[in-house]
């Protein structure tokens, strides 16, 4: 047999706590990735920032992503308290906010292609940084989609809500990463 579940009696730390620790370790690791990306911005471009950046859009998508964190938090809280409707509604809201964020980024990319294409100094940093972050948003959206469809039958609201919790924690992490990226790209001077 390939998969074996260790007997419950032997475990002194609950499965949930082990999962949480593992996820946090993974997020710590991802933090180093974003640290590398952000440090390369300062190494290559210093504090240089083109005046043509779409500041309104930048602030807008930042607030949209923060809003998605709130709805993700509400989805998790609802699931933990057995509120099926609240869970579904808020998960869906999170997915919509996340998709809106991606739409914002793609509008930003269209403009950026003309103002500072990827082969320019700032464009290199801009497209890499937003691209890697958008990839994380995309994986988060996939996971949220899975959680949303799996959770319609109430499996997460009946006590075993690790699936929701883990996905939502990852989603919050993506938000934290953006919170650092936003000023790095749009604001520092």
């Amino acid at each position: 047999m390939a998969v074996h579940a260790p007997a419950e009696a032997r475990r002194h730390v609950s499965r949930l706590a082990i999962n949480r620790l593992g996820l946090w370790l993974f997020l710590l690791s991802e933090g180093f990735l974003f640290a590398a990306i952000i440090s390369s911005r300062y190494y290559l471009q210093g504090l240089n920032r083109p005046e043509t950046l779409n500041q309104v859009l930048g602030l807008g998508i930042t607030i949209v992503l923060i809003a998605s964190s709130l709805s993700a938090y509400r989805a998790e809280t609802s699931a933990a308290h057995g509120d099926q409707k609240g869970f579904s509604r808020n998960t869906l809201a999170t997915i919509i906010f996340g998709a809106l964020f991606l739409v914002g980024v793609s509008i930003e990319w269209r403009e950026a292609f003309h103002q500072f294409p990827p082969y320019t100094g700032f464009g290199t940093i801009f497209f890499t940084m937003t691209g890697i972050h958008a990839f994380h948003v995309l994986t988060g959206l996939l996971a949220l989609g899975v959680v949303f469809f799996l959770g319609r039958d109430g499996r997460f609201t009946k006590g075993a809500s690790w699936g929701v919790e883990g996905t939502v924690k990852y989603w919050h992490f993506v938000d934290v990463a953006w919170v650092f990226i936003y000023p790095t790209l749009y604001l520092v001077n």
Partner: peptide, 26 residues
């Protein structure tokens, strides 16, 4: 649940305020 949801709302407001302050500061 009620307290938790309200706490989430306050955190959200704080985050938005910080983002706007960052923007205005620039």
């Amino acid at each position: 649940p009620r307290v938790a949801l309200r706490r989430g709302l306050w955190v959200f407001i704080a985050l938005v305020v910080l983002a706007v302050v960052e923007y205005l500061l620039t």
